[in-house]
Amino acid sequence: MTRPPTVAQRRLIEAADPVTGRLRGTQAQLDALVKRGLAFRHPRPPHDHFLTPAGHRIRDAEPQAPAVAEGSASADGGFAARVGGEEEAPVLSGAARLREVRSAWQGLLELRRMTNPGGATDRPCGWERTHLVRAAALALEAAGHLPAGPEGDGYRVRATPQPEAVAVYAPDEPALRACTATLEGAGWQAGAYTEPRTRVRYLLASPRRT
């Protein structure tokens, strides 16, 4: 049975061009993917490396988050930003959790640099657009916002029926405005709305494209 790719190799695979499958990395990293049948070297100059069908299958499966820290907890083994209202606390807490979140955010910025046109880090990348709730939650947690506990106040990020949009709830109007500023600074566009029945205020946020 073929061993699954390492965390570093999976990160490289997930950062491949979403259309062409072109890879970026050191020669040693690319050679390792070729050896495992996950990439091939194009015969024509500049001899770029591209994903094979096997590499595409790995990338198209449910990907891990952009950074994985020891002790992090999520169903797929990757880092899990707190979306608010979780029944279980993360494996790490306090200063260790802060370091884990900071590392995950830096990993996400690197993923943006590697996959966005022109290496832009000021707007979300493809991974974020397919993991909207986790991506928005990471931006909030990395900026120091506190997620809601099972019964406590704090932000909550939830999926919506709208494409490329999440709902963000906060305990009061100042907290909602602070979440707006954070998300806009992280490359999202956000607007405040009121639920017709409950009159609860919330943000509708989506990744900015330009």
Rank of each mutant, 00 (worst) to 15 (best):
F50P: 01
F50T: 01
L51M: 06
L51Y: 03
T52L: 06
T52R: 04
H56E: 07
H56V: 09
I58L: 14
I58R: 05
R59S: 05
R59P: 05
A61Y: 05
E62V: 15
P63C: 06
Q64I: 09
Q64F: 03
Q64M: 14
P66S: 10
A67E: 06
V68A: 11
V68S: 11
V68C: 10
A69S: 07
A69D: 00
S72H: 12
S74R: 14
S74N: 11
S74Q: 12
A75Y: 13
A75C: 09
G77D: 10
G78V: 06
A80Q: 14
A81R: 11
R82F: 03
G85V: 10
G85S: 12
E86F: 13
E86Q: 15
E87P: 02
E88H: 13
A89S: 14
P90A: 09
V91T: 15
S93D: 11
G94N: 08
G94I: 06
G94S: 08
R97Y: 13
R97H: 14
R99A: 13
E100F: 04
A104S: 06
A104E: 01
A104D: 03
W105G: 00
W105D: 05
G107E: 04
E110C: 12
L111G: 04
L111W: 09
R112I: 03
R112P: 03
R112W: 09
R112M: 10
R112V: 00
M114C: 10
P117D: 10
P117A: 13
G118P: 11
G119N: 08
A120R: 15
A120N: 07
A120F: 01
T121S: 02
T121D: 00
D122I: 00
D122Q: 08
R123I: 09
C125T: 01
W127Q: 05
W127C: 07
W127K: 07
E128V: 01
E128F: 05
T130V: 10
H131M: 05
L132H: 07
L132W: 07
V133D: 04
A135F: 04
A135P: 03
A136S: 12
A136K: 05
A137E: 06
A137I: 12
A137D: 07
A137S: 15
L138G: 05
A139E: 06
A139Q: 07
L140W: 07
E141M: 10
E141C: 08
A142R: 02
G144S: 10
H145I: 00
P147C: 03
P147N: 00
P147S: 04
G149I: 08
G149T: 09
P150W: 10
E151P: 01
D153E: 15
Y155G: 02
V157I: 09
V157D: 02
R158A: 13
R158M: 13
R158K: 14
T160F: 01
T160W: 03
P161C: 08
P161A: 14
Q162P: 00
P163K: 12
P163M: 10
A165R: 15
A165D: 03
A167H: 05
V168N: 01
V168R: 02
Y169V: 00
P171G: 02
P174E: 04
A175H: 11
L176H: 03
A178S: 13
A178H: 06
C179A: 15
T180I: 06
T180Q: 15
T180A: 06
A181K: 13
A181S: 12
T182S: 09
T182A: 10
E184T: 14
E184L: 06
G185A: 02
